[in-house]
Simulated assay, not measured.
Amino acid sequence: MITDGSLVHVPIGTLRTEAGAEIPEATIAYRAWGDFHGKNLLIVEHALTGDTDARSWWDGLIGPGKALDTDTWCVLCSNVIGGCAGSTGPSSPHPKDDKPWGSRFPAISIRDQVTAEYRLLEELGVREVQAILGGSMGGARTLEWTLMYPEMVRSAAVIAVSARASAWQIGIQSAQIDAIEQDPHWHGGDYYQTDEVPAAGLGTARRIAHLTYRGEQEIDERFGVMPQPGENPLGPYRDPAQRFAVESYLDYQATKLVERFDAGSYVMLTDALNRHDIGRDRGGLNKALASITVPTMIVGVDTDILYPYHQQEHLSRNIGKLMAMAKIVSPVGHDAFLTETRQMDRILRRFLVLSCQGNPPTPPEKP
């Protein structure tokens, strides 16, 4: 395993999806930090628009002396199947003709993402994982890991997610998908061979999503009804160039995502979140939760709009082997698990103490 933080691509063969489609010659990309010595692996799962560079998006939590201490642990983060940061996705070349997969890329589920990650670990020769931890879509994958491969996972931290997608979540996420698919530059998902990108649709999707990622209190305290400096949204006629400050903020967030993320992957991964349901084919949610034997910490955010705290309370009440429950208190909302570094530092340190029962792994002596 390469652990210097560089991006590594690993072929995993043909991936057969939960729904019966196939992705031939699939590849999963990963980055890892810290020496690996068999039993000291931590898997960090990224969220919807995250990537393998966990040290960047979880800044302050991964590295020497930090909560996920790379002097003790090997920390690995892979890009999900269907993504656009190194793993096979809609923008990747199809093995038949070397043209982008586009609309030929099959729908995927959270379980398919976990299957692909398991295949990656098999290729890397990993037999045991000390802990898997992730938030949002990463939390959904973490939860599925505890049910799909419990023999491989010693502990899990499930952060800011639910046991299944709620109707509200499916509705708000489907609106984002629709914004992209209604963009005339979408071309049914086959825009890759044109000079056009569905930027307007992806930007709108991001604006909708970002409002669910942040807390209402935080947004209102930051922007209120202030106009964007130099603009006047209160003129005699509506002018889209004259914005409130919050509109400018959302435009900025939209532009940033369009510059770094693929619209096809956004549709695929958002649809995967719509399909999230750990109770499917397992006798329902509570039966599935009760069957979990992996010691699991549940973490939620008190102001989360997208995955409200009552959903984490439901997990904690029904999970078979609850390790602990933690609450992030923040006006930020769902994104607090990414932004509240001090609180997450305490939570992750406590998680690893409980995971190891106070005895972290000792690296082998160097000859």
Rank of each mutant, 00 (worst) to 15 (best):
A336V: 02
R222E: 12
V246K: 12
W168N: 06
P93V: 06
D277L: 03
A32V: 02
V258L: 08
Y309Q: 05
K96C: 12
Y192Q: 00
R111E: 10
A156I: 00
L41N: 08
I177K: 10
N286E: 15
D271W: 06
E218L: 09
E122A: 10
A160V: 05
H9D: 12
R317G: 08
A140V: 15
A54I: 00
H185E: 11
T3H: 13
C84Q: 05
M226E: 14
I208H: 10
S355I: 05
E22V: 06
L7P: 03
F105R: 13
A336D: 01
G224T: 11
G83F: 04
D262E: 05
M152P: 08
N359R: 15
W186M: 07
G65R: 07
D51V: 01
Y30C: 13
A116C: 13
V129D: 10
A29Y: 05
P240S: 07
T14L: 07
C356A: 13
P233M: 13
K327C: 04
P150W: 02
G215F: 06
I219S: 14
G283E: 09
D51W: 00
M137H: 09
R141M: 15
P308K: 00
H276T: 04
M137Q: 14
I328A: 01
S162C: 03
S248D: 08
T270L: 04
Q311V: 04
A175S: 14
E181V: 11
S316L: 08
S136C: 12
F244T: 10
Q253I: 03
G5I: 06
A263S: 03
W101L: 11
G82F: 09
A209P: 02
G189Y: 01
L15R: 00
E216D: 15
Q311A: 11
K99E: 12
L306S: 01
D59F: 02
I347A: 05
E259C: 09
K99C: 11
T70H: 00
Q343K: 05
I159D: 00
Y237L: 14
K39D: 15
G63H: 01
A165L: 01
M297I: 07
L147S: 09
V153W: 01
D35M: 12
V80I: 13
P95V: 15
S136W: 07
T204C: 13
G224K: 07
R260H: 09
E22A: 14
L306E: 01
K39E: 08
P295L: 03
Y191S: 09
E128K: 10
R111M: 08
P106W: 10
M226Q: 13
Q312T: 12
P360M: 10
I298R: 03
V44P: 01
P100C: 12
V8Q: 14
G13D: 12
E181A: 07
V258S: 00
D190R: 06
R207V: 02
I12V: 14
